[in-house]
């Protein structure tokens, strides 16, 4: 019990209850939260989000397209927050050039599938989360799987692929949290179905980003990924997000954050 009389339940107890009832731990956590108890590993979430919102998170699904500098940080946050189901897509294996920025990559797992490593790491962080890991490009299995998601997160690394993803999310009627980085700079926005802002943003000029000349730094990826995770969580629990109407631009060299109004009016 804590000082407000709420029962806090340790993971070992949750696991035992799941084993004895032959169900998965996520279901036990849902029951506990419904009764007003709090799984101890979420206790620091509560107050920033309510118990009801924690319960809501456990019953939601998020798809993360890309397990690179952005994606792995995003997945880490979503799993620790207690998002119930996470689907991850990436066709690649870890390579040496990933080591400067990609969470969970190390010299021992070079050559291993990124989505397999993801699966192992999430199981260590929060075994209540169920994970669907797909070692291929998201395009190969979008359709029905996209429609099942409450939110999709864009953690891709090319501009044409990002535009295709925005179209696929619009077709599935699922909100998309966009983020991109290059050097010390990054951007993010929330794209509701019907919002064509990404095409407006990327569509008029060339299709090659500054990351090709400025590289990708670990802290830039981590900052933008954290902000994307926060936006995804806000969408999942129904909190307001100003980024439905704006782009957010982050400059870590002069520590500035600017918000630019979107210009289309067709946002649902």
């Amino acid at each position: 019990m804590n000082d407000t009389g709420e029962k806090q339940v340790k993971w070992q107890e949750i696991k035992s209850m799941a084993d004895s009832r032959n169900t998965d731990p996520r279901e036990i956590e849902i029951s506990l939260l419904k009764e007003g108890s709090i799984p101890l590993h979420y206790v620091r979430n509560i107050k920033a989000i309510s118990k009801e919102e924690q319960l809501q998170l456990l019953q939601t699904r998020v798809g993360v397209c890309g397990c690179g500098g952005l994606g792995l940080n995003i997945i880490n946050h979503l799993a620790r927050m207690g998002v119930g189901h996470i689907t991850v897509w990436d066709p690649d294996i870890f390579s040496e050039s990933n080591l400067n920025r990609q969470l969970w990559s190390n010299f021992s797992n070079l050559g291993e599938s990124k989505v397999d490593v993801c699966l192992e790491e999430i199981a260590k962080i929060n075994p209540a989360v169920t994970v669907t890991s797909i070692q291929s490009r998201w395009e190969d299995s979008a359709g029905d799987l996209f429609r099942q998601q409450n939110v999709i997160v864009d953690a891709l690394d090319s501009i044409p692929a990002r535009l295709d993803l925005a179209d696929a999310c619009a077709a599935a009627g699922v909100p998309l949290v966009h983020g991109a980085v290059g050097g010390w700079y990054g951007q993010l926005t929330v794209i509701m179905p019907g919002d064509r802002c990404l095409h407006d943003w990327y569509g008029k000029f060339v299709q090659q980003g500054i990351e090709n000349v400025l590289g990708t730094l670990p802290f830039t990826a981590a900052v933008i990924a954290s902000m994307q995770a926060a936006e995804a969580i806000k969408l999942l629990i129904g909190r307001e997000s100003v980024l439905k109407d704006e782009f957010c631009l982050v400059d870590l060299l002069d520590l500035s954050l600017e918000r630019i109004k979107k210009c289309n009016n067709d946002v649902t």
């Binding site: 500098g69 991109a180 951007q187 990327y202």
Partner: peptide, 10 residues
């Protein structure tokens, strides 16, 4: 007039 570079990495 606001001028932005293209950022697309991940």
């Amino acid at each position: 007039l606001s001028i932005f570079p293209m950022v697309g990495g991940g």
